[in-house]
Amino acid sequence: MSGTLVAVVCGLAAVMGGWAVVTVARDRRVGRAHLVGLAVVELAVLALVVDGVATLVGGPRPVELATSIAYLVVAPLVLPAGAFWTLAERSRPSTLVLLVACLAVVVIAYRALELFQVTR
């Protein structure tokens, strides 16, 4: 798994999470621009998943194979779920759900990198 790609995902997700905080601080609501931003982060996540699958197929495989697969399956679902839960109620604090989702993506990407580095 590419460390650069993980860094890109973490960076984009961190920016998006920061944006959510700024949105809450300025008392704005989640709009189309946020969804575009989330889509950009999601594309990076998908690239990471493809990279991870390629690593699993081509080897060397991580020791924690089952866990690694679970990370690849869950990773692309986090942002859509967060977006859904945020949009279901456009209140001020509800925007912070995006921050939770973005932080989760950062943790998942970083842990995935750690998992994929320990190979047989």
């Binding site: 869950v74 109620e89 209140s91 001020r92 604090p93 912070l96 939770v100």
Partner: peptide, 20 residues
């Protein structure tokens, strides 16, 4: 509503993490 939704999001992350 409100912060409860943020709490639900946090709990959901931990539910998925712990169960997996």
């Amino acid at each position: 509503s409100g912060l409860g939704r943020v709490l639900v999001a946090l709990y959901a992350v931990f539910a998925v993490a712990a169960v997996s």
